[in-house]
Write a protein that binds this DNA or RNA. Structure first.
Lengths: 196, 196
DNA sequence: CGTAGTTTTGAGTGCGTTCAAGAGATGTGG
DNA sequence: CCACATCTCTTGAACGCACTCAAAACTACG
């Protein structure tokens, strides 16, 4: 079973590259991005451990993929996704991952299209909390490697709006910041309410 | 091979229903929608002939699916998506369709998150033209069954903005309207430019 | 210690929204 | 077949949310 290590900021694949492998994240966090010619960016997804990235279309990757923290991935042959003969069990796992990806993207759609800046930001923190949070006394603590710009490009907002919204959540005592990338959630219910 | 007919406005499945079948559109147009509790809607995709809808996650549909014109679908067992043993050829076709769906959704993301109202509307008409347009003299003509509200919910805009933007495109002589759902594209290049 | 990148905050603007009203289309029952 | 009700589409006016521009505070790194 082949693995690969990535340093923070290192590229895994680019849009348009031929797909030979798909990757299963085992540690660290990856970022999938699409870019318009004029530089506007959209972060499609973040790849956390357990996620699979690099689904092909017409034999090509359709996003950029970069590590945003040092990370490790298991390398799978794309053949196992396309064909069930070679390794039925792995094949089924990959197909299931693709379906999960579709579901996740569908949820992200309504966020991008129909939620306000506050709702988007609260949803984002809420999901991260569910996925990576650890109890800290009565509260929940988690860290994340993405910058405000990454979050903004994920939510379809400007960096300034993300920062401002997080500041508001701080002032409203929903969260506290240990550093700009380390959060303590003080009021989970209020955070979920805000996510709408 | 089992098929099913749907009348305009008829429901095919709802969010939360157990997935037993997935559907291949053979005629007409379907609409996949997600709805927030307060009524805000997001159209995830339109299902045109050749498209496959109803990909499951955790055994459940994650969108509503309604016909927006009379339509016909081929009914496939969800087993053939999940398992390659029974019908390898069909299985492969369904997996490929799922991957295509992921690619299409990724493109839709940057539209929702990073494009302006004009760019969104032009992209929408542009894609529809590519997919369903027929030559009409030097121009291209096509019709579509979705209302302004459907388009708005697909693009993350208000009905009024969609209507206004289309009116602007009319005044700029990029398009002409035969009726509100029948378009003649007068200047393809300008339309593509506008799509950014 | 200096430089470059990130985050925060402030001020002002503009794009797309909401609210409102009228025109146009579609369908139903008398 | 027409009158009426309903839904869709368009257009106008005014508002407000999130944006851009600008600058300062903070952080990381060589």
């Amino acid at each position: 079973m082949q693995t690969r290590r990535l340093e923070a900021a290192q590229n895994l694949f680019r849009e348009g590259d031929d797909v030979r492998h798909i990757y299963e994240v085992t540690s660290g966090v990856l970022r999938l991005t699409k870019v318009l010619e004029d530089g506007r960016r959209q972060v499609i997804a973040f790849g956390y451990p357990g996620d699979i990235v690099g689904f092909p279309q017409d034999g090509m990757y359709h996003t950029e993929c970069d590590a945003i923290s040092s990370a490790e991935v298991v390398v799978h042959s794309v053949t196992d996704l396309e064909n069930g003969d070679r390794n039925p069990e792995l094949h089924q796992r990959l197909v299931r991952a693709a379906l999960k990806e579709i579901g996740a993207m569908q949820s992200h759609f309504i966020m991008l299209g129909r939620k306000t800046a506050s709702e988007k930001t609260a949803s984002f923190l809420s999901v991260l909390m569910e996925r990576t949070g650890k109890p800290l006394g009565a509260y929940t603590h988690f860290e994340f490697p993405m910058t405000r710009a990454d979050i903004a490009d994920f939510l379809g907002l400007s960096v300034e709006t993300v920062s401002r919204t997080i500041s508001l959540m701080r002032k409203a005592k929903l969260i506290a910041l240990e550093s700009s990338k380390s959060v303590v959630v003080l009021d989970e219910d209020a955070l979920c309410d805000m996510a709408a």
